[in-house]
Simulated assay, not measured.
Amino acid sequence: MKHKPYPRHPFFDLLREFIRDGYSKTLLHPATARQPCSLLLEHGFDFEGQDGDGMYSSSICLRHQRRVLDAEIKIYTRNGLAMGNGLAFAQGLRLDKIAHTLQHDPELGGCRLELLFDATGENGALLINEGIVLQFHAADRAGAGNHYIRTIESDFFFDESTRQKRIATYSARLLHGYSLPQLLRDKTAARRCRKLSVLFGSSASGEQR
Rank of each mutant, 00 (worst) to 15 (best):
R112A: 15
T32Q: 04
I73C: 10
F117P: 02
Y76M: 06
G92S: 04
G109W: 10
K195R: 15
N146V: 08
E122A: 14
R163L: 02
S24Y: 09
H100C: 04
L95H: 09
R66E: 11
G49D: 03
C193M: 10
L93Q: 08
K25F: 13
F158V: 02
A204W: 10
I132Q: 12
S38G: 08
A204F: 15
F157S: 03
R112H: 15
T120V: 10
A88I: 11
F200Q: 04
H100D: 09
L93R: 01
T101Y: 14
Q91V: 12
D96I: 02
L14D: 01
C37L: 01
D21R: 06
L40I: 05
I149W: 00
E122F: 07
R20M: 10
L127W: 12
R192D: 07
A125P: 04
H176P: 04
A99G: 12
G22S: 08
L175P: 04
S203K: 02
H29K: 08
Q65M: 03
R66P: 03
D186Q: 13
M1Q: 10
T101C: 14
T169A: 09
E153H: 12
R112W: 07
L62H: 04
L93N: 02
L69C: 06
H9G: 13
T169I: 14
D159H: 00
R150E: 09
R150Q: 11
G177E: 11
T120S: 15
Y6D: 15
D13Q: 15
G44T: 07
H64P: 00
Q103C: 03
E130N: 11
A138W: 01
F18L: 05
T151N: 11
G22P: 07
R191I: 12
C111K: 08
R34P: 01
P106H: 05
R67L: 07
L115F: 02
G84P: 00
R191Y: 08
E48R: 05
L41S: 10
P181V: 14
M83V: 03
V133M: 08
R16E: 14
L174R: 13
H176W: 06
Q103L: 06
K25Y: 13
S161N: 03
R112E: 13
D118C: 13
R163F: 01
S38V: 12
L102R: 02
V68F: 09
D155H: 02
S161D: 06
E130R: 10
E42N: 12
K165C: 03
A190T: 13
S38T: 12
H147E: 10
G143F: 12
D70I: 05
Y148G: 07
A168S: 15
P30W: 10
F117D: 01
